[in-house]
Write a protein that binds this DNA or RNA. Structure first.
Lengths: 400, 400
DNA sequence: TCCATATAGTTCAGAACGAATACTAATTCA
DNA sequence: TGAATTAGTATTCGTTCTGAACTATATGGA
């Protein structure tokens, strides 16, 4: 939900809260800067920065890392950097696996464990029990590695309400209106920033923004090819959640008004052409007891072998995605796309088809079509990264 | 352009600036409230509100309007309301007319004058000279009516850069890269808030938000049927300008990937089906020396007469708009649409076609399709309203 | 070696501001 | 007439940033 202009009165203390976050914002994941440099960049006075940094050192978010040489002459500054011994936990429940990881403030994924398992149709309670076992192991590993957790996040492939911690619906898991508030509580017990629930495509889009292709772009449409076609819109280096809180639902943009009925009740949606089932079906790769992963592998083999039917199916998917991408380009004035999830496997065929169709439908409009290189850890990284950002945006919560 | 997180240091004075605007924000166009009521609504203390109101009275934005009865007992409060003797000027250059008006802080359009003239292909300088003559008359009328101007705005049917005051391109005027900084300066000379340039569809969308259908909606896609098909996205009661600053360009969303080439170089765009020329052409209403307004009148006569070709052309436009509306619904999670401009003339045929197609392509997704009732003054009202909002958001600029 | 110069960082007085509290003002009701 | 109730003001206090003066630590040349 886009935040309504809450009539919150400005208090004197707000200024300090804002400036504490401002100082942290001057330090990227890898940056080292002295108090004087921070003062110059932020526009704050040296006196204010000194005072703010003292507080931030107390929170443990910041640490001093020896001296820095600025100009040739004069007293050297004391280097300041984000403390790599603080971090957040990210978790992901997906159709074929569970994954949990710990990301530190410097953006390093310090621990990452994945458990393959088919969670489709399992009772949420059973899945969550497995997840918590995995999370406990990961927390222990992080602790052994010297990382103290500040918070966490959980990503699921479905429509979620972050404020209440409920999964409204996750069709591919078979979940419907599942409350996860307790599960979130148990994920990172006793940390100052409670774990939050998020959509898997949104988390992956954010991981891309903070630690992947998106850093150089700032604004882009992230397309996630999973069982469905998910999407996340990043506008001006921020996740755009739209009017109702669930923007970027690319899978059900209409690309063919006269096309096939979709499971959503609509007609001619992207998913009816570019969803996994649609592609595999059109390519003639039948279910036959095989897993989705196995069938996708068969598809890539067919593509490599030059199988005409497979190539046409993937090309058709690329064309459908192009129509949706143009709609995004026009409606929210985007000019970049990042493709992730299983689309990466199809890139050799999908990329050219997408490029070509974009050039026909809206020449010159899309400047950059890129494929993600974050791999399978995107959602976990994004979920943990969001918790890290929450901490860096609200350092005052860590002060007495 | 979505504002990058400018590293602006928070200063002590920011708190007061914010709270001054907060107090004004508690007073809608028609609202009257006492200091005590404002304190209760805003969360500020009575003492702070008293102090803030004293400053605001000094700016002239606020005025005392007699006593108010709160509860049954106790001292009555002093009513506070926005001062209707302050306002802003809105101007519009369009293909068939020039218009200038003055809107007061209470949202009343106190003066509004329109001059019919075909501005297509005229030199920008000539058009602007006419506009300034009109603006001078309107300023005099406002002054005679006791309204003091705080600022202004100018809306044009094209892509603009508000920060530099340039029109990048306005195809239907035949303008290309026209600098309007001087013209804006002359529009409201000597006012504290400089006039700003805006897109006509965006201004109309904002007028809808502040003074029309949008008040009840908060988030919607505004569709403006002019020579082209313009659009404005309002998300969470704010104009959404997207990644590049020009969101809502509905006219070139692809609705038929195999469709006709568009003047933009693309294919199957909304405008190739729902633009004025496309509808008139498909309806068989030829140019024949007649003005666009005349041809549109002929179209509505044909519709009223039950002419099949005309009805099919408008229905086809409704279907095309539906595809674009679904794209917006999915991508930015909208559920409401407001139709303005010349679409209002076609509402009897266009509305049902739109509803029906929406129900086929995305059943239940769009909750509200409404037609604007602001008429021809939408863009002028929006341009002036934006200036009013700027003043109400930055009252400190009016203090010594 | 020693001092001028340059840069980093701290200390302290001052101003701006909202919060809390106690006060005055104006009204109703018994 | 006075108690109760509500509106609004005055005063004191704590928080925070700013700016200027100050201390700390380096380089480089006499």
């Amino acid at each position: 939900m886009t935040s309504e202009a809450t009539p919150a009165p400005g208090r004197v203390g707000d200024v300090r809260r804002r400036n504490l976050a401002l100082v942290l914002g001057c330090l990227g994941p890898d940056a080292v800067a002295s108090r004087a440099e921070i003062a110059a960049v932020s526009g704050l006075t040296k006196a204010s920065v000194s005072s703010l940094v003292a507080d931030l050192l107390e929170t443990g978010l910041l640490e001093e890392v020896g001296v820095t040489r600025g100009g040739e002459r004069g007293r050297p500054g004391v280097g300041l950097a984000l403390n790599p011994r603080r971090g957040a936990l990210g978790a992901e429940v997906n159709v074929d696996y569970l994954a949990v990881g710990v990301l530190d403030l410097r953006g390093q994924l310090r621990v990452h464990e994945t458990v393959e398992a088919s969670n489709q149709g399992r009772a949420p309670g059973d899945v969550l029990a497995d997840l918590h076992g995995l999370a406990a192991r990961v927390r222990d590993a992080a602790s052994a590695d010297g990382v103290e957790l500040l918070g966490g996040g959980l990503a699921v492939p479905g429509i979620v309400d972050a404020t209440s911690g409920r999964v409204a619906t996750a069709p591919n898991l078979g979940w419907d209106d599942v409350p996860l508030a307790d599960a979130l509580e148990d994920l990172v017990p006793g940390t100052p920033f409670a774990a939050e629930l998020s959509n898997e495509a949104d988390s992956a889009a954010l991981a891309e923004l903070w630690y992947g292709r998106g850093r150089a772009l700032g604004s882009y449409l992230y397309l996630s090819g999973e069982v469905g076609v998910g999407g996340g819109l990043v506008i001006g280096s921020q996740l755009f959640t739209g009017a109702g809180g669930h923007a970027g639902e690319v899978g059900h943009v209409v690309v063919d008004p006269g096309g096939r009925r979709c499971s959503c009740g609509g007609r001619g949606c992207v998913e009816t052409v570019a969803g996994q089932e649609a592609i595999l079906g059109a390519a003639g790769i039948t279910g036959g007891g095989s897993t989705t992963t196995g069938r996708l592998a068969a598809l890539t083999r067919s593509l490599d072998a030059g199988d005409d039917r497979a190539i046409r199916a993937v090309k058709r998917a690329g064309e459908a995605l192009a129509v949706a991408v143009v709609a995004a380009a026009r409606l929210v004035d985007l000019s970049a796309v990042v493709l992730g999830g299983h689309f990466g496997l199809l890139r050799d065929v999908l990329g050219p088809a997408l490029d070509e169709t974009l050039d026909d439908l809206a020449p010159g409009r899309i400047a950059a079509v890129t494929f993600s290189d974050l791999g399978a850890s995107a959602a976990v990284t994004g979920a943990a990264g969001a918790a890290v950002r929450r901490a860096l945006a609200a350092p005052h919560a860590l002060l007495g």
